[in-house]
Amino acid sequence: MKKQLVISTSIDLVRIAPDRVVYFASDGNYSTIVQTDGEVRMVSYQLGQIEKLIGSQLGSEGAIFIRIGKSLIINRSYIYYINVPKQKLILSDVNTFNHTVTASKEALKQLKELLEKEAK
């Protein structure tokens, strides 16, 4: 069975397949989960804690997620477009959703190089 990511607090619980997450965004002490179905959910975890949960629960399968700077964890499956000078990153399945996020030029440059390297 495919591993699910479980984000549990004292009052609620989110259980989601990793490939249903487009990205996590930091919102202070909270984090926002942007899902492939368009829903946006806020959880009372800091982004660093989400990163730890992914690492501990998904193990090597967690490698589909990439932490970008302090405020983003993206699902690499949905990286559609990177523009370094414009600091623009579009996450999309090229069908149902399309999310534009921003990141630092250096981080996007590294991300671009990573994907280029993996493509070879």
């Binding site: 660093g48 992914i54 690492g55 998904l58 967690g62 700077g69 030029k105 981080a107 990573l114």
Partner: peptide, 13 residues
């Protein structure tokens, strides 16, 4: 996990 800067990326897991 180590702290991360805004101009860094890290593959999780």
């Amino acid at each position: 996990f180590k702290d991360i800067k805004d101009d860094q990326i890290r593959i999780i897991g």
